[in-house]
Computed example of a mutant assay.
Amino acid sequence: MASRALAKPQLRGLLAKRLRFRIVGGFIVSLSVAAFSKFAVAEPRKKAYADFYRNDDSMKDFEEMRKAGVFRSTK
């Protein structure tokens, strides 16, 4: 029977090699999450606010609430 010698494990530089991989992976994941949140959350929210204020008539809303009796100090 022939016995095979096991390969020696890499110990020198192992931490640096793994950290390099994990830092690059973490950077890529964080950039993708930031881009997703910008384009899936922030941009639609900005558009919704712009659409709301484009068609908003605050004086009309105030008059409707005044007629409904919401405000006690105005007549």
Rank of each mutant, 00 (worst) to 15 (best):
46 K>A: 13
41 V>I: 14
48 A>I: 04
10 Q>M: 02
38 K>A: 15
50 A>K: 13
61 D>T: 12
70 V>E: 09
15 L>V: 03
65 M>K: 12
45 R>T: 12
3 S>G: 06
23 I>A: 04
39 F>I: 11
41 V>T: 10
42 A>W: 06
67 K>G: 09
44 P>F: 03
26 G>I: 00
25 G>I: 00
19 L>A: 10
29 V>D: 07
75 K>H: 13
48 A>T: 07
52 F>D: 01
57 D>H: 01
50 A>G: 03
59 M>Y: 14
31 L>P: 01
53 Y>H: 07
30 S>E: 11
74 T>Y: 15
1 M>F: 06
75 K>A: 10
44 P>N: 07
65 M>T: 05
2 A>S: 07
31 L>Q: 13
11 L>E: 12
38 K>T: 15
47 K>H: 10
20 R>N: 11
53 Y>Q: 02
15 L>K: 14
47 K>T: 12
12 R>T: 02
50 A>L: 10
27 F>I: 06
74 T>N: 04
40 A>N: 08
55 N>M: 08
70 V>A: 13
7 A>W: 00
64 E>G: 01
40 A>F: 10
66 R>A: 11
45 R>A: 14
47 K>P: 05
75 K>S: 13
17 K>A: 09
32 S>K: 14
66 R>N: 07
8 K>Q: 06
10 Q>R: 05
12 R>G: 02
54 R>Y: 06
12 R>L: 12
39 F>P: 02
34 A>M: 11
21 F>D: 02
20 R>S: 15
35 A>V: 11
46 K>Q: 13
8 K>E: 05
4 R>Q: 03
58 S>H: 13
67 K>N: 05
49 Y>C: 06
45 R>D: 01
64 E>C: 11
72 R>V: 04
53 Y>E: 08
2 A>G: 02
45 R>C: 08
21 F>I: 10
49 Y>E: 09
35 A>S: 13
20 R>G: 15
56 D>W: 14
4 R>H: 05
34 A>Y: 05
5 A>M: 07
53 Y>F: 15
41 V>K: 04
63 E>F: 09
63 E>N: 13
18 R>T: 00
69 G>Q: 05
53 Y>V: 06
6 L>A: 08
66 R>I: 14
38 K>W: 09
62 F>T: 08
4 R>K: 12
25 G>F: 05
8 K>A: 14
64 E>Y: 14
22 R>P: 04
17 K>M: 04
35 A>E: 13
32 S>D: 00
3 S>L: 10
63 E>P: 01
17 K>L: 06
7 A>I: 00
14 L>E: 01
48 A>L: 11
70 V>G: 03
26 G>E: 10
71 F>Y: 12
4 R>P: 01
47 K>E: 15
23 I>Q: 03
12 R>K: 13
32 S>R: 14
74 T>P: 00
